[in-house]
């Protein structure tokens, strides 16, 4: 039998990794809100966030904070380049959303292979943002990096909520996803919103990758699992609702943790994706209403 503190310890671990899934899911939702596109290169942005920070910090020798900022900027710019060179031309040719989704999957593979050939095939990590022993409370140990993950994730979701509800640009991004033709009639530049969506979702992915790397590791191949987990988070939460996607990520992280505790670590994904199937059968639209449907 497990005692309460052990269960709580696993719960915190689940929430921590769930926050990262949530951030990836938020990235899916942000882009979906701006363009109606599901970007399967999202996990590639997560991987690059960690890998580029590693290169700039460990190989180039930049201070950690500078390496992180530069990595986020680089990945955000890459998101913009993907939009300019791949998505925009496809939109101009009136390609279906399915074609564009397939193109993002191709981008994921390109990013993965570029990281393999330009960096290396080894796993890498980053130092904790705040060095020091875990906080101990009632038999539970909470790592300082876990607090960073939870705190930064919550802050991002809060700021995104303000962005979509309080700023004219955020509202316009939603309007472009609801009805791009009407949005353009009212003076909104739809292609600029789509580009902004790519920029923002890529930056979110990079932040997630940087946050998680000190507690796990990063390598060229970690992108796809994050894509899958983030997509599941977005579906559970209701695609198009960033807060829902974030909560969906936490639910997924906790379920994986529960699967590992109560059955076996090898079954964590069986439990998590079993629950996803139940969600799809019972509530295919997710638990939260989309902001654009």
């Amino acid at each position: 039998m497990y005692n309460a503190s052990t269960l709580l310890q696993f719960l915190i671990g689940g929430i921590s990794v769930g926050c990262i899934y949530g951030l990836v899911g938020v990235g899916f939702s942000v882009l979906y809100n701006a363009s109606g596109i599901i970007n399967f290169a999202q996990g590639g942005f997560v991987m690059l966030g960690g890998m580029v920070t590693y290169v700039l910090y460990s190989l180039v020798g930049l201070p950690l904070i500078a390496a992180m900022i530069a990595a986020i900027a680089f990945v955000a710019l890459l998101g913009l380049v993907i939009e300019w060179t791949i998505i925009k031309p496809l939109r101009q040719r009136s390609a279906s959303v399915f074609i564009m989704i397939l193109a993002t999957l191709a981008c994921q593979i390109l990013i993965e292979n570029a990281a393999l050939h330009l960096i290396d095939d080894k796993p890498h990590s980053l130092p904790y943002f705040t060095p020091g022993p875990p906080l101990q409370y009632a038999g539970i140990a909470i790592g300082l990096q876990t607090l960073w993950i939870i705190g930064v994730s919550l802050l991002i979701v809060f700021l995104l909520g303000l962005f979509y509800s309080r700023t004219q640009f955020g509202r316009a991004m939603r309007a472009c996803a609801i009805n791009p033709e009407v949005a353009s009639i009212l003076g909104m530049r739809v292609e600029r919103m789509v580009a902004s969506g790519f920029l923002l979702s890529a930056a979110l992915g990079a932040i997630g990758g940087i946050l998680i790397t000190p507690t796990q590791y990063t390598a060229f191949f970690v992108g796809v699992p994050f894509t899958v987990s983030g997509f599941v988070a977005a579906i559970i939460g209701g695609l198009g609702n960033p807060l829902g996607a974030f909560i969906g990520g936490i639910v997924l992280g906790v379920l994986q943790s529960a699967g590992a505790v109560f059955i076996d670590a090898g079954y964590k994904n069986v439990v998590a994706f079993g629950v996803l199937l139940c969600v799809l059968f019972l509530r295919p639209q997710g638990f939260f209403k989309s902001l654009v449907e």
């Binding site: 004219q168 316009a172 309007a175 009805n179 009407v182 009639i185 902001l291 654009v292």
Partner: peptide
Amino acid sequence: TLVPESRMIFGPMTVLENLQLGAYS
């Protein structure tokens, strides 16, 4: 500007948000 056929308001948004978006340009 145009008021399109079938109104095409931004349904998931509030009335206020719809009006605010009218002034986007």
